[in-house]
Design a protein around this nucleic acid. Structure first.
Lengths: 143, 143
DNA sequence: TCACGATGCTTGAGTTGCTCAAGCATCGTG
DNA sequence: CACGATGCTTGAGCAACTCAAGCATCGTGA
């Protein structure tokens, strides 16, 4: 077989990596008693409380989905729903200490990225970060 | 704030990329009328038929899940379930022409990897493929 | 000021993806 | 040829999701 171009090889390798990444994340969450989606919510709250709407935007899903996700998280005391002082329609969702611990624990068990990146030497890590920055940076869509 | 190490930056960028990747794949599939899981099944059949059990292994899920997934795909004539000539317990699942077209169409719409990799020049693509190869290559687990 | 559209969230109904436990048919082997 | 192992399906049940409707609150223009 002809050897594929670097671009095609990179595409295949990226697919494999994403596959492994998703699986590892789900496993890590599961070990802590969370679903991947729930862990993802905790992740989005780590830098401070957020409104339901903001979570829905960030997680690219319907607001009603967040309602249920947060309800389940709240039932397990990983998250608290509070009122917004300036707008009574808005709910502010915040991590509880237990939620913070759970999220930390998911991170601790989610070894895959650190492991994989750790296989590279510092110069290669620098290279990778540079390449990913070029790739991740979204094209300017606005005028 | 102190600037994070390359490893930490790479980890963050990788997270973002995986997030975008998953979302883009699901969207691409949805546009063709498939769920991500269904598209994934078609993907696994592209190099030829597979048994239900093999699909379950590759997709890291229970066999009964594959039963239902394949049933839905079959109902829409994207795959066919045939008998194995040498073992009557085994079902061989194969893409139909329509299934092959659908899978192709998902790929056509799933622009993200090619787009992102396409932002790199050939030398960078080569670099990326090399780094990903180092990362993806699983540690030898067998003796 | 107050009616009314917009905004933020929830509820209810319905689908899919998934798991586990059980069950059925077939296979291979002692 | 009996019996455990293998391959798949069925049924029950949950989580994650979407859409449509509904409720409360907000902000604004007449």
């Amino acid at each position: 077989m002809a050897s594929p171009t670097p671009a095609v090889r990179a595409e295949q390798l990226l697919w494999d990596l994403v596959y492994a990444y998703d699986d590892a994340y789900e496993r890590a969450a599961l070990e802590v008693g969370l679903s991947a989606a729930q862990a993802c919510v905790l992740e989005h709250l780590v830098d401070g409380p957020a409104t339901m709407g903001r979570l829905a935007d960030e997680m690219l899903c319907d607001a009603s989905n967040i309602t249920q996700l947060v309800a389940r998280l709240e039932a397990r005391t990983w998250v608290e729903r509070g009122a917004d002082p300036t707008d009574r329609r808005v709910k502010r969702v915040a991590l509880t200490p237990a939620g913070r611990r759970a999220r930390r624990e998911v991170h601790r068990r989610f070894r895959l990225p650190a492991d994989r990146i750790g296989r590279l030497d510092p110069a290669q890590q620098e290279q990778l970060a540079g390449l990913l920055a070029l790739m991740t940076d979204p094209d300017p869509e606005r005028v």
